[in-house]
Amino acid sequence: MNTGATLKKESISKFKNFYAEYTYLFSFIVLIIIATMVNNKFLTYSNLSTLMLQASIKGIIALGMTLIIISGQIDLSVGSTCALVAGLGVVVLNNTQNAFVMLLFCMVFGTLLGLVNGLLVTKGKIAAFIVTLATMSAYRSIIVQLGQGGPFNVSYELVDKFRMIAAGGILGIPNLALIFIVITAVIAFMMSNTKFGRYVYAVGSNENAAKLTGINVDQIKILCFSVTGFLTGISAFLLSSRLTSITAPNAGASFELDAIAAVAIGGTAMNGGRGKVVGTFLGAIMLQMIEGILIAAKIPPFLTGLVKGIIIILAVLFQSRKEK
């Protein structure tokens, strides 16, 4: 009798631990059920393909945000970084007539902007919230000034070919979705199987303890911001391809909120030290599903930001309850 009761308690405990570890999977399943109830065409290939396409660009940025949040930091500048890189990337494309050169520019320039954030946080000893709040404003101001408030348009002769990078696909799977999946796999492998990944978790869990074990904490933080800048550069390139016109004041607007929301929904602890890249991947998709559900339910679109804010708060509250 005692043995049976003990086994039952152990089973319940294991389920609770599994649920706490993989809450995002249960949330994903629940959202699929709700989305199917609201929209009977939700599970069609066409709809799922569109869902992945819409989630990909912001999802790639969210992957970088995952590294930053796991390391105990935050980056509010990713939206403005995306706009600045995308706008200047279009200028590079128009002048070189070469999309590959533009991609290299976007990756390098995005990395440099992320590096600036990392250096200001580590060497300047300024809180990441303050640094990235400042660079968010600065990067946006620069691109608006350079564009004089107007759009950066891909030249007419390049539009159709360049658009196909984002609009095309392989075997019916959108290029954007494939790129998102590949980058997720690379980042997940890096975080699970490399020294860098282990160090990121260690820094986010206990920075002082990480220092005592010989980890170069500043270097890890700088790398996290730089990788995020790199991924934001890729997203900027893909955003330019999808839109073929970058409006400086609006491009990338609220991307930072969406990235943080995807990370939170994906189960990453907002105070650092714990999280899964796969969770963020599903979080980005879930965020897009929520927007689709709101549209299908005829909820006013200007309430989307309210819903995202509530989601972030609920995710953080849930995380804090799990840690008690």
Rank of each mutant, 00 (worst) to 15 (best):
I126E: 01
A128G: 10
A128H: 03
F129M: 14
L133A: 09
M136G: 11
S137D: 09
A138K: 01
A138I: 15
Y139N: 05
R140N: 08
I142F: 08
I142L: 15
I142A: 12
I143G: 00
I143Q: 05
Q145H: 00
G147I: 03
Q148H: 13
V154G: 02
V154T: 11
V154Y: 00
S155W: 00
S155V: 12
Y156M: 10
Y156V: 13
V159F: 13
V159P: 04
V159E: 10
D160L: 06
D160T: 10
K161M: 11
K161S: 15
F162D: 00
A166N: 01
A166I: 05
A166L: 06
G169C: 06
G169H: 07
G169F: 04
G169I: 00
I170Y: 12
I170D: 02
L171N: 12
L171G: 00
L171S: 08
I173T: 07
P174M: 01
P174F: 05
P174T: 02
N175M: 05
L176N: 00
L176A: 03
L178P: 03
L178K: 05
I179N: 07
F180N: 03
V182L: 15
V182S: 11
I183W: 06
T184H: 06
T184W: 15
A185L: 15
V186F: 15
V186A: 14
A188M: 12
S192Q: 15
N193A: 12
N193D: 11
K195R: 14
K195L: 13
F196I: 08
R198C: 06
R198Q: 11
R198M: 13
Y199D: 13
A202P: 00
A202T: 03
V203K: 03
V203E: 04
S205Q: 07
E207K: 14
N208L: 14
